[in-house]
């Protein structure tokens, strides 16, 4: 589906974007954030679930829809235990409970907002295109239920570009996943913008 040069170029773009996002996360929690090499792939929409590498049954997800030059869904996924640890890192406190309170949810949503905006927003800056973000939504639920709410799922799009990258804080006490999902039309526009910005496609 993707040529090696498209995959390479996209991997580079994602590396830059997620580097920016990780720096933001690191400055919030005062910890080093370790990143894995991003994985870029194209799949039929109905097969998306099986290609998502974050396999926990229940996750806390901050989901943000973006639109403009290209449309899609950006998602930060953290397992629920990791979410509690992350929130306590933000507050510089020892974990009290694994249950997410209302203020925990607010904090997590803001972390997701900052991280996803840094990630997708850096695409906008690098490619000289503009996207607008909807307000973030936090959900704690099964991954399957979450996937049914994707913006692209409401369109008649059969294939999606899936960009996944995994990060880790505190030797794996917090592990998360960022996914960027776009339909074919936006994917084509993304490659056009990348070419215009000088990426070798």
């Amino acid at each position: 589906m993707l040529s090696p040069s498209q995959r390479d170029a996209l991997g580079e773009l994602v590396n830059i974007g997620f580097g920016r996002a990780a720096a933001s996360l690191s400055s919030m929690v005062h910890q080093r954030v370790l990143l894995n090499t991003p994985d870029v792939s194209v799949h039929p929409l109905q097969e998306l679930r099986e290609h998502l590498k974050f396999t926990r049954p229940e996750v806390a997800t901050v989901h943000q829809i973006f639109s403009g030059y290209m449309n899609g869904d950006a998602m930060l996924m953290i397992d629920t235990d990791g979410a509690s640890t992350l929130i306590n890192l933000l507050a510089d406190e020892t974990p009290q409970s694994q249950q997410l309170t209302a203020s925990d949810r607010e904090a997590l949503m803001e972390v997701g907002n900052i991280l996803l905006n840094a990630f997708v927003g850096s695409f906008g800056n690098l490619l000289n295109v503009r996207v607008t973000f909807a307000v973030p939504r936090l959900r704690v639920e099964a991954v399957n239920d979450l996937l049914s709410t994707l913006a692209i799922g409401q369109e008649e799009i059969r294939f999606v570009l899936l960009v996944q990258t995994h990060f880790m804080i505190l030797d794996g006490q917090v592990e998360g996943f960022v996914a960027l999902i776009m339909g074919v039309e936006s994917m084509d526009k993304l490659f056009v913008a990348m070419e215009q910005a000088g990426f070798q496609i």
Partner: peptide, 24 residues
């Protein structure tokens, strides 16, 4: 703003914002 796109910074300054700070 968490939105780091240059457009937002430029537009905010055009509209007379005195500073634009990225979150965090």
């Amino acid at each position: 703003s968490a939105d780091i796109q240059d457009y937002n910074r430029n537009r905010a300054m055009e509209l007379g914002a005195l500073a634009f700070l990225n979150k965090p």
